[in-house]
Simulated scan of single mutants.
Amino acid sequence: MITKHSAKSSSKWLNKVQWDEHGLVPVIAQQTGTNDVLMFAWMNRDALEKTVELGEAVYWSRSRKKLWHKGEQSGHIQKVLDIRLDCDSDVVLLKVEQVDDIACHTGRHSCFFQQLNVAEAEWQAVEPVLTDPEAVGK
């Protein structure tokens, strides 16, 4: 697990991130051990700093226009074990331990549960619902 500490002590590492024109960077959350891709989200500087500070994933909600501590309502937090930056410094990868194995607000393990069935020309859900989506929230 990343060591919890005040990320504000040095902004040098934050300045390396290539933030987009809205001050955001795309983030992929990946389950440690299995390497399952759990979800895609966005972070701003505050979200990335808070993630390091807490050792838990904090994202920027574009729809709500505020910080979103993953699992704050559902309890399905993401414990951050490792943070990586891609070769262009414009995508962040979080290696996480997903509490209760549910990352998606649909009650599934991963947000990537729809698979293209080329023969039928349609998307099909291929992952089971693990818990009532009403209990998960966003």
Rank of each mutant, 00 (worst) to 15 (best):
D100W: 02
Q115G: 00
V52C: 02
R64P: 01
Q78Y: 11
W60G: 04
D101I: 03
I83Q: 06
A119P: 06
W13P: 00
Y59T: 09
H22V: 02
D88C: 02
R64D: 00
P26M: 07
C104L: 06
C104S: 04
N44W: 13
I77Q: 03
H109F: 05
V129N: 12
V92N: 06
N35F: 12
A125E: 15
A29C: 13
A135W: 00
K4H: 01
L130S: 13
L85D: 15
Q73K: 07
V52F: 04
S10M: 03
L48V: 10
D88L: 06
Q31A: 15
Q30V: 10
H22W: 08
K16N: 10
V80S: 05
P128K: 04
A135Y: 00
H105T: 13
D90K: 03
E49S: 13
H105Y: 12
I83T: 03
A119V: 06
H76C: 12
D101R: 11
D101F: 09
N44F: 12
N35S: 14
E97Y: 04
L67T: 06
L67E: 04
A121E: 13
I102R: 00
K8D: 14
V52Q: 02
I77P: 02
V129T: 15
K4F: 02
D100G: 00
N117I: 09
R84D: 15
E49G: 06
D101W: 06
H69D: 06
A7S: 15
V92D: 08
V58E: 04
V52D: 01
L81Y: 08
H105S: 10
R108E: 03
D132M: 11
A47N: 03
A135L: 12
E49H: 07
S89N: 15
I83Y: 10
L48N: 07
W13I: 12
W42R: 14
V136F: 00
Q31N: 09
P133K: 03
T3I: 14
W123L: 15
L54I: 11
L24T: 04
A103F: 02
D101H: 10
W68L: 07
P26I: 07
L94Y: 11
R45Q: 13
K65H: 05
E49T: 14
G75S: 01
Q98R: 04
F112A: 00
Q18E: 11
H22F: 12
E72K: 01
S9E: 04
K65M: 06
A57T: 15
G107H: 12
M43V: 11
L130F: 13
D90Y: 08
H69V: 06
C111L: 13
G107D: 08
V27M: 10
L130P: 13
L24D: 02
V37A: 15
S74Q: 03
L24C: 02
D100Q: 05
Q114K: 11
